[in-house]
C-alpha cells in the first residue's frame, strides 16, 4: 500500500472538486470525545478554549481524521442571546427555557454582537489557535446554526411551527434578525481561521417540513444567508431526510450536504450529480454498539456507494459522534477508511 500523497486539506479540496484524491477524506466529527481525552467533564471541557484546542488536536492524531471540528455545542448560540445551557454528563448540552417567550417579543428582538459574547469569543479563540497549529494542512470546520433552524432553541419547536404557518410576517421578521446574527457569527469564524462553515439546518429537512414550504422559507433564508457568508459552506440536515430537496439545497450555493442514514447513499450520490458533495452517512446511533468488524463493513458500504469520482466525505450522519461511541469503533472507522478508501477504488464490483 502506498503512503498517502496528499495532506488533509489537499485531499478534501480535491474531493470537493469532484475529483478522486489519494483516498476518501474522513470527516470524523468528534466533539464530546475531547473531554474524555482530557479526563474532564463535558461542562469543564467546554469552559475553556485551551481544553477544546488540546482535545481537537489529540482526536485528530488519534483517529486520523481529515478535519478539525471546533464546534462546542448547539445552544452556545442561544447562550449568546441570553439563554441558559443545560449540561449533561453523557451527551451534548441542551438549550434551557426559550428566550422568546411570546410571539410579540419577536417584534423587539435584537441580535447579540459576536465580539461581546464571551461564549462565542471562546470558540473564536479556539479556531485561531487551531489555525496557528495546522496552518493550511487540515480543514477547520466552523459551525453556524441556520437562521431558519435557530428558533427551535429560541422559542421551542411547537411554537415555532405555529409561527411559520400562522404568522408569516412575524416569521419573516425573525428570519431577518437571525440572519444578521448568523452572518456575523459565520464570518467571525472564517476571519479567525475556519476553512468553511457547516450550516446546520435540520428544520429544512423533509423530515421536518414539506418541500413546498421549504422552497418558500428555509431555502429563501439559506440563499440570502449563504450569499453573505464569506467562505465555503456545507449544509447539514443533522440526520434528517434530504433526497427530495437535494437539488434545491444545491441551488442555495452550498458546496456540501450532510446526509442521513435513513436514505440510500447511492441514490443520493446520483441525485447530487456532481453539483454538491456529500458528507455522511454512518449511523451514529447504531455506531455505539458496533464491533470493529461492523464498523469496517459500514465504511466499505458507504465508500462503495458514494466514493467513486470524488465528491464524497465519509462521516457520521448527524454531524456529531455520540459520547457513547467507544474508542475502538472510531479507531476501526479510521483504519477501514485508510484501507478501503484508497483511490482508485478497484475493489468495488
Amino acid at each position: 500500500m502506498n503512503a498517502p500523497s496528499m495532506n488533509s486539506m489537499q485531499r478534501t479540496l480535491t474531493a470537493l472538486g469532484q475529483q478522486e484524491p489519494d483516498r476518501v477524506p474522513l470527516f470524523l466529527l468528534t466533539t464530546l470525545h475531547g473531554a474524555r481525552e482530557l479526563g474532564l467533564s463535558i461542562e469543564e471541557y467546554f469552559s475553556r478554549s485551551e481544553h477544546v484546542i488540546e482535545g481537537q488536536m489529540r482526536l485528530l492524531k488519534k483517529y486520523g481524521g481529515d478535519c478539525l471540528y471546533p464546534f462546542f455545542y448547539a445552544p452556545i448560540e442561544t447562550e449568546a442571546w441570553g439563554g441558559e445551557v443545560v449540561y449533561l454528563p453523557d451527551g451534548p448540552p441542551n438549550a434551557g427555557p426559550p428566550i422568546i417567550r411570546s410571539a410579540q417579543a419577536i417584534d423587539h428582538l435584537e441580535p447579540p454582537r459576536v465580539m461581546e459574547s464571551p461564549c462565542l469569543v471562546r470558540v473564536l479563540e479556539t479556531i485561531r489557535e487551531l489555525k496557528a497549529r495546522v496552518g493550511d494542512t487540515v480543514p477547520i470546520i466552523g459551525v453556524a446554526i441556520s437562521p431558519f433552524s435557530l428558533p427551535v432553541m429560541q422559542m421551542g419547536f411547537d411554537r415555532y411551527l405555529e409561527l411559520i404557518y400562522e404568522q408569516p410576517e412575524r416569521f419573516e421578521h425573525l428570519m431577518r434578525v437571525n440572519e444578521a446574527f448568523t452572518v456575523e457569527w459565520a464570518n467571525a469564524q472564517l476571519a479567525a481561521g475556519a476553512t468553511a462553515i457547516c450550516y446546520f439546518d435540520p428544520i429544512s429537512s423533509t423530515t421536518n417540513i414539506p418541500r413546498d414550504l421549504y422552497l418558500k422559507t428555509g431555502q429563501q433564508v439559506a440563499r440570502r444567508t449563504l450569499a453573505r457568508i464569506k467562505g465555503p459552506t456545507a449544509t447539514h440536515l443533522a440526520s434528517g431526510r434530504v433526497l427530495p430537496i437535494l437539488n434545491d439545497i444545491a441551488d442555495t450555493g452550498t458546496a456540501v450536504v450532510g446526509v442521513s442514514a435513513l436514505e440510500d447513499l447511492a441514490e443520493l450520490k446520483a441525485a447530487a450529480n456532481r453539483r454538491v458533495s456529500l458528507l455522511g452517512n454512518l449511523n451514529g446511533i447504531e455506531m455505539r454498539r458496533w464491533t470493529p468488524e461492523q464498523a469496517e463493513a459500514a465504511v466499505k458500504t458507504a465508500i462503495a456507494k458514494a466514493g467513486r469520482g470524488g465528491g464524497f466525505l465519509l462521516g457520521d450522519n448527524h454531524g456529531e459522534i455520540p459520547w457513547q461511541v467507544p474508542e475502538d469503533v472510531l479507531l476501526a472507522i479510521g483504519e477501514a477508511t485508510r484501507r478501503w478508501g484508497r483511490y482508485p477504488l478497484d475493489w468495488i464490483e
Partner: peptide
C-alpha cells in the same frame, strides 16, 4: 415513508 413532514403531523 418520508412523504409527510413532522410539521404536517404536528399541525
Amino acid at each position: 415513508e418520508g412523504t409527510v413532514a413532522l410539521s404536517q403531523i404536528y399541525m
